[in-house]
Simulated scan of single mutants.
Amino acid sequence: MRRKKKLKKPVASFIILTNIIFWPLFCVVGAVKLLGYPTWLFDTVRCLSAWSSTFAFAILFPRIYPGQRFIHFVKQKFKNKLSLSVIVLIVMIQTAIFIMILFHIMNNYEETSIFTLSSWGMLSFYFVKTLLSGPLGEELGWRGFALLELQKKYSPLIASIIIGFWWGMWHLPIWLTTGFMGMDLIKYSFFFMLTIIATTIIMTVFYTINQNLIIPIIIHQLFNFFIGSINGNLIDLIMYNAILYSAVAVLLILINPKKVLYKIQSAK
C-alpha cells in the first residue's frame, strides 16, 4: 500500500481540523441544553466536544508521522517515570493560588457558600467529570503533539505562546455562551487568554523537566477543578487566575531561563 504524503504544516492542519470538529459538536451541546434533554446526555456530548483535538490528531496522524502507529505514539507519551518532586511542586503551586483566591473571595463574598460543591460525593463526581471533559481529551493533541512539534522550530517560550494563543481561541464558542457583552466580554476574553498562555508556559516548563503527559494533564485538571469549585464573579475569578498564573510563569522563566528561552535541539 502506498504511504500517505506527509503534511507540510502539521500544526496548522491540526489546529484547523480541531476547530472544524469542535464547532459542530459544541452546537450539538447547545441544542441538547436548549431542548431540555437529560443532564447525562448533555455531559456526554460536552465531553466528546472536549476531545476534538484528540480526534483531529488521530485523523491526521498517518500524514504527520507516516509509518508510525498511533497507539505506540500515545504510549510513548506516558512511558517516562513520573517525578514525585515535580508533581508535589505543581500541586503546591496551584493549591497556593487556589487558597489565595479563596481568601480573597471570602473577604468579599456575601452569599451563603463560597463553594459550588456541597458534599464529598459531588466533589468526587465533579473531579472525574472535569478530568474527562478537559485534560484527558485535550492534552495529547495540544501538548503531546503541537507544543513539542513547534519546539523543533521555536524556543519553548515562543512555542508556548503560539499554542497558548490557539488553544485559547479554540475556546471562543464558550466565551460567547458566558452571557457577557461589551466591556465585560472584552475583559473576560483578555484575562482568559492571559491565563491560558501563562498556564501553557507553566506546563511547558514542567513537561520539559518530566516528559510524561501526566504532567500537563495534572496542571490542566487542577486549574479547571479549582476554578470550577469556587462561587463568585466569573470575570473576577479569571482575572485573579490570570494575575497569579502569569506571576508563576514569569518566576519560572527567571529561575531557569534555559528551560524556556532557548530552542531545544530535539523534541520527541
Rank of each mutant, 00 (worst) to 15 (best):
V11M: 13
I87G: 07
D43F: 15
P24C: 10
N241H: 14
K79D: 00
G134H: 06
L222S: 12
K187Y: 13
K8Y: 14
P156C: 04
V74M: 06
V32D: 07
Y207R: 12
M169C: 09
F125V: 05
A159P: 01
R3H: 08
E149N: 14
V91C: 06
W142D: 00
S119V: 04
K152L: 03
L157H: 11
S85T: 14
G121Y: 14
M122D: 05
A198C: 06
F22G: 09
K187H: 08
F26S: 12
S49N: 05
C27Q: 15
L157R: 07
L172W: 15
Y154E: 04
I114R: 10
L102H: 15
K259D: 00
A159H: 13
V128W: 15
G30V: 04
T177R: 13
L35W: 11
F14Q: 08
F115A: 03
C47E: 06
T130L: 01
T44S: 10
S119A: 05
G67K: 15
L251Q: 05
S49R: 14
L41V: 04
C27F: 09
C27L: 15
S83H: 14
F206A: 14
V205Y: 11
D43G: 03
V32Q: 12
R143L: 02
V29D: 07
F103T: 05
I243D: 01
L237N: 06
T95W: 15
I209K: 15
M100I: 07
W51I: 06
F180I: 01
S266H: 15
K259Y: 12
S189N: 07
N210F: 03
G137N: 05
N19A: 08
V86I: 13
L194R: 02
F14I: 05
I218V: 15
I16Q: 05
Q76C: 00
F55W: 10
L123G: 00
S246T: 04
F145D: 01
L244H: 04
P135K: 02
R46K: 14
H72C: 00
P62N: 11
M203P: 01
I264L: 12
T95P: 03
L25A: 08
I71C: 02
L136K: 10
I215P: 02
P66T: 10
I238G: 05
G232I: 04
S13E: 10
F61G: 09
S119C: 06
F57D: 00
E111T: 07
G164V: 01
I101W: 13
I59V: 10
A96M: 08
L213W: 14
I64G: 12
Y154K: 12
I163P: 03
F190T: 09
I158M: 11
S119Q: 07
T208C: 01
